[in-house]
Structures are given as C-alpha cells and as structure tokens.
Design a binder for these strands. Structure first.
Length: 270
DNA sequence: CCCGGAACCTGAAGGC
DNA sequence: TGCCTTCAGGTTCCGG
C-alpha cells in the first residue's frame, strides 16, 4: 500500500521523465476514479497542458500543469503509476499520454485510486496535517496535538488531518520502535514518549524512502521495480513471528478495522 | 470537535 | 475441485 515513502519514491523516479513534457490526452477506463470535473470538461482542460512540476503532499501526487491547473492523484491501496510505452499493464484504469509517445499508466486493481483536476491544489490538500519530515513538525507540536486526542495512538497516527502520509505499515513500525502499545490513548503519552515517537516516525519514513518503499501487495515503482523497505519491517505484517528484539510472538489485533501488529512485551499496554 | 463504523472495490487465501 | 466467506486497508461519509 503506497504510503509517504512509496509516494515519495514514485515522485522522485517519475519526475525526470515527465517534467517539461506536454500531455497529449488522457484515457479513462474507469470513469469513477475521476473526482472532478466531469469528463466532458476534464478532457479539453487537460489535453495540451505542459507538466511544469511534480510534487508530493502526504500520500497525494500533484502534477503542476501550465494554464494554472493541477492534476492530483491518490493511489489509495492498490494503485501504482507505471511509466513507459507499449501496451497498458493489466488493471490499468487510466493512461496519461505524453507528447513523445511515452505514457503514465495508472494501474489499480482495487479501483480505489482517484484523479482530480483542480485550479487550486489547496482546495484538496488543505485538510491535511503537517508533513512529518518537514522542519516545522516538532516534538512540541506533536505533544500539544496528541494532548487533545483520546483515541488510540494508532488511530490518531492514521488520521491524515492529524499528520499526513503515515499509513498502516509505518504506524506499526513507528510504534514498535518507540515501544508504545497501539491502543494507548493518544493523550496518555508522556513528553518523553512523544519525543521518542517523533524521532522514530522520521527515522522509519526516511529509511523506507532510502529503500525505495515497501513492496507488499501491489506496490511498484514507475519502472516496474519493487522496493525493499518491507524486508526491514520489525512487526508490520509479521503476525505470529518472533519479535526481533525479544522473540515474543508478534500479536495482531484489529484497531479501526485495520490489522495492527505489535510486540506485547516491547510495547506494554500500561 | 471527537470518535467509531460502514461503504467503496476486487484479488487472494482459507474453510468446508 | 469448487463454491463461499473473509481479509486487505486509505479515505469519505454518516450517526452518535
């Protein structure tokens, strides 16, 4: 599932191939992925637009276009963007055609991914919380915001309006690295614990970016390669296996309908 | 505002 | 073998 490190990798690897190119057209095989505007307005507005930049905010990818438009993509759970020419891969839901014959294939078996063309990217991105890797995200800000939340810390880390870009895998990894039980009420964390959590969130995300993301299930990089971050996972998707620190079997419990993996000994409930 | 649960989807995996 | 159920989870929407 693409989370911040996966989307960051896609952005970095796609960017050199597409910036400066012009979109000759977009093919939609699954129209419901287009959030706005309606297809009749979408096609004439995007065709012929030059791609002037590509950026990431949270798990969103933002294609900056000439003419004051932005194309915003979200890969949700099973999406990937594959770059190339030739026949579209299986499960391709949209194709962004470039003027030099190359394409961006939006592959998405689960059909959860979205595209939207907007004048102002902030209309979509304004509800996101801080970027965890930005300098303005400090331990003090994290502590103050956690104080206002009594939901399980795991659920709060997944709230994109609280902090942007963390998904199920990296939330589990960060909580393990900080030794914090995922069900702990967010407002029960001590200043020391929050300082530690703040540090490991950054470390876990930064290391995953260095490994080009985690290829569990359907994540691929634009060239079709996988990432290797999952090979460094301590607890995520490792239910029943021994904790790498203490050998206790890793537990899996549902929190907000999502599988949460943790070590009951290294991450005590109290 | 805050919280929890359903809905959106489809392939994979497990049960009988 | 084959049908059926369950699981996977990012986001949005809805109800309390």
């Amino acid at each position: 599932m693409p989370e911040l490190p996966e989307v960051e990798t896609i952005k970095e690897e796609l960017l050199p191939h597409i910036v400066g190119r012009t979109i000759s057209g977009v093919t939609l095989f699954w129209e419901r992925m287009l959030r706005q505007p309606l297809p009749a307005e979408f096609h004439p507005r995007i065709s012929g637009q030059k791609i002037t930049g590509l950026s990431r905010r949270g798990k969103y990818l933002i294609f900056q276009l000439g003419g004051g438009n932005c194309l915003i993509a979200h890969l949700r759970m099973s999406g990937s963007l594959l770059f190339g020419r030739g026949l579209p891969p299986e499960y391709t839901r949209a194709i962004i055609h470039l003027d030099n014959g190359n394409n961006i294939f939006f592959r998405d078996p689960r059909k959860f991914g979205t595209l939207q063309l907007v004048k102002d990217s902030d209309s979509v991105l304004c509800k996101l919380g801080p970027e965890p890797l930005s300098p303005s995200f400090t331990p003090e800000i994290l502590y103050d915001s956690l104080k206002k939340r009594k939901a399980p810390i795991k659920a709060v880390l997944l709230d994109q309006g609280f902090i942007a870009g963390i998904g199920n895998m990296y939330a589990d990894e960060a909580l393990f690295a900080a030794g914090i039980h995922p069900l702990r009420p967010a407002n029960s964390l001590s200043r020391t614990e929050v300082k530690s959590l703040h540090r490991v969130i950054r470390e876990v995300l930064q290391e995953a970016i260095s490994s080009k993301g985690a290829s569990v299930s359907t994540y691929f990089r634009p060239g079709g390669e996988t990432g290797t971050a999952h090979s460094q996972f301590q607890v995520a998707h490792r239910g029943g296996k021994p904790c790498p620190v203490c050998d206790t079997p890793i537990q899996r419990i549902p929190i907000r309908q999502r599988g949460s993996y943790f070590c009951p000994k290294c991450q005590p409930e109290a």
